[in-house]
Write a protein that binds this DNA or RNA. Structure first.
Lengths: 337, 337
DNA sequence: CATAGCACTCTATTTTCTCGATTGCTACTT
DNA sequence: AAGTAGCAATCGAGAAAATAGAGTGCTATG
């Protein structure tokens, strides 16, 4: 258990290091607290023994360890009010009813990347609440038709289908069948239903049913697929912990790798501190996230009728935790409204 | 006018520098030609006086100047056959009839970025050949309908429209009117036609015509809008001329700036050499492109019934000119097929 | 328990030194 | 005149040495 003063010192060191990115010496701390540098140094030694602080070398100031950041996030961090200007900018996006949800997400995360200098990630999936509303077909020429699928939540997906000799009549017949049989089916059940209920039927009525079946199958797969977007990648370059080209390359390649992004999506907080700060915003510091030991990932899930997914912010471990948590919380609430 | 030998030397220096990125000394050249280093040095002095070569400092080998690269590209460069493996990979993309043109473009440029380690850019616009084929409306609930527009070349665009009290009946009436009056109109004339022919008419028949008019106007604007995609940005990091973080930042920000990409689109070759290499592939070296004095932009335009646009490759001035020109030429031909 | 003082450690930066590559020039050869 | 060999001069890149400064740990003292 830490004493009040030790917590105070740890907090100051973390905040100072976040601000200036330089190891924090005892002098700076003792200016703020009312005690001498020697006293602070003694406390520092203890915090270091507890594994909360580290030294970069024998005689330099202290830097928070991963455990130190964790302690700060769980116990010491204060969530300040959001900057009014920032809220205003975000609000204008959320109030713009012209935009689709995915645009709102992208735009607001662009803004957040700007405001924070970190990188944002959205993983968006059409919610299971989406049910098939309507399927229609527009013939383009003798060989090609376009299949358009609409869900009851307003998603539209379309695909060119080459007929390869199937007559337009047969296509229309198939569409009519599908419309009759699976309208109202939740999108994540469509594939199965198509396979086991529709396929046998159209096989009877339609000659070249394979071609058509595949085409429709593709459209439905597309509509329930995930959508990944990474915003503000260049911000990586702004942080001095990444001022090494090798490091930058490595992080960039990770941010481009869909597997890693899936991994972020699947991260789950083990040590679920149910402190006052726990607003379903999860923080993964360094090795806690499987992405890169030098970054922190802060993420949250959202869910509406139309979509569900994850938004995450990636930055250096020396991150403005409080600001990011606040922003994510704000966005989550706005989206879910 | 350069002598045969001077051309030979210039060509060797350019090729060697492209390969190794180190200033080329006289020794290396005289190994390949049958003459002494002193002779080569004398020639080098002359090439330098002509502005085709430069020195990085008083006593280092030579580096091609911008003018030197230009001379190489215009007069000396040999276009070798494309690597069979590369062609094969590209071909599998072009042969995949499942893909839409924009996907084909993106995928093939991804491949090219991989193969070359440069950055690719596509600027794609729906061709003026697109004519309106069909407009339909799907009601989602009492307040929202989705407007779907299809062109005769198979483009689909859609948009949510909030009704704000307009009755579904009126929407349908409007759609019917539009369908009757402007089907077959080229997309770039739709806006005007909507304004001057449709608006007056629906104003008579429909009460809240402003809302509807704006909604349709938006959809049509979207369908004729440009589409920019930058692929393989990270490749910038691979080239040692950009191993400086400041430089990287600067180039990244330029590649993110739509204005600059438009500028690339609008670049036009002044000194249109109609040499044998002129295949409508344009090369802009350093200051010739308005983007960045340290890069070269190689670009070409394409045009099909469905789309038209520009593809460009951006890399260091020390670029594999021959390879890139060949690849662009190949892609252009494939697309236009 | 807190503090002042001091020798010590280590980094970061600057300065100096050395090595090697390459040049330009001059004098010589063909 | 064109080509070549030889040589001093130049400069950069990298290693080694020198310096300054910030911060520590420890000890003795209030």
């Amino acid at each position: 258990m830490l004493t009040k003063r030790q917590e105070e010192i740890l907090k100051l060191i973390v905040m100072e290091y976040i601000k200036l990115a330089k190891p924090v010496g005892s002098k700076l701390i003792c200016d703020r607290l009312n005690c001498s540098s020697a006293t602070v140094r003694n406390e520092m030694v203890e915090l270091e023994e507890l594994g909360l602080l580290e030294k970069t070398h024998t005689s330099s100031g202290r830097v928070p360890s991963e455990k130190g950041y964790r302690y700060y996030v769980d116990n010491l961090m204060e969530l300040k009010e959001l900057n009014g200007e920032d809220v205003f900018k975000l609000q204008t996006i959320f109030n713009n009813s012209q935009l689709e949800l995915s645009d709102v997400l992208n735009k607001s995360l662009e803004l957040i990347s700007d405001m924070t200098s970190y990188t944002s990630i959205v993983l968006d999936t059409k919610s299971h609440e989406n049910k098939l509303k309507e399927i229609s077909v527009v013939p383009i020429n003798n060989d090609v038709v376009i299949v358009i699928v609409v869900t009851d939540q307003g998603y539209v997906e379309h695909k060119d289908v080459e007929l390869h000799g199937v007559s337009l009549e047969e296509v229309k017949k198939t569409v009519k069948l599908i419309n009759e049989l699976i309208i109202g089916t939740p999108i994540d059940e469509v594939s199965a239903k198509l396979e086991f209920e529709i396929k046998p039927i159209i096989a009877k009525y339609v000659k070249q049913h394979e071609v058509l079946y595949n085409a429709f199958y593709d459209v439905f797969t597309d509509i329930s697929s995930k959508n990944i977007n990474v915003v503000g990648k260049n911000n990586i370059l702004k942080h001095q912990e990444f001022n090494d080209l090798g490091k930058v390359k490595s992080i960039f390649s990770k941010l481009d790798d869909e597997n890693i992004l899936e991994k972020i999506d699947e991260l789950e907080e083990k040590n679920n501190q149910s402190g006052e700060n726990s607003k379903d915003i999860e923080v993964y510091i360094g090795n806690e996230n499987g992405v890169d030991p030098d970054v922190t990932v802060i993420k949250t899930n959202y869910k509406t009728n139309k979509d569900e997914g994850t938004i995450a912010i990636v930055g250096p471990k020396r991150m403005e935790y409080s600001k990011v948590v606040n922003l994510l919380d704000y966005i989550k609430k706005q989206i879910e409204r």
